[in-house]
């Protein structure tokens, strides 16, 4: 398989697939379907300044982000999960927007991986 990715690290994906390309495809498609929905919800919660929902959503996204090896996002998400109540709202917005930018880049990686391999 050809991996020309910039943001994601497919190592965990390759490990779980154990040579079965259908499994890799399943996780790529799932990422492509789930992440845009979650970005959409994240934007809505951010607009409403609903800190609790922002944390909840990031908490839910975190395992998938780790699995796809998006290491740039691990620390910002961990900070948001731990400091969501106390962090100034401007800082929280900036951090969440950074997360969204990186997730969009990861989506491009996943899209490319699907196009090049399946």
């Amino acid at each position: 398989m050809h991996w020309n990715t910039k943001i994601i690290n497919p190592q965990d994906l390759i490990n779980i697939a154990r040579g079965d390309h259908k499994i890799i495809y399943k996780y790529l498609i799932q990422f492509q379907e789930l992440i845009p929905q979650r970005i959409h919800s994240l934007k809505a919660h951010l607009k409403a300044e609903d800190r609790k929902q922002v944390r909840q959503l990031l908490h839910q996204m975190s395992p998938q982000i780790q699995f796809f090896g998006i290491n740039d996002l691990v620390n910002p998400i961990r900070r948001l999960e731990l400091e969501y109540e106390t962090m100034p709202i401007e800082e929280l917005c900036t951090l969440v927007e950074t997360v969204i930018i990186k997730l969009n880049l990861a989506l491009k990686d996943v899209h490319l991986a699907i196009n090049e391999n399946f």
């Binding site: 779980i16 154990r18 499994i23 399943k26 996780y27 799932q30 990422f31 789930l34 839910q60 395992p63 998938q64 699995f67």
Partner: peptide
Amino acid sequence: DDDPFIRELLQDKLDQ
């Protein structure tokens, strides 16, 4: 689990 990703991942690991 309410996360579809975790359900898939756990199921695959258990199957394998």
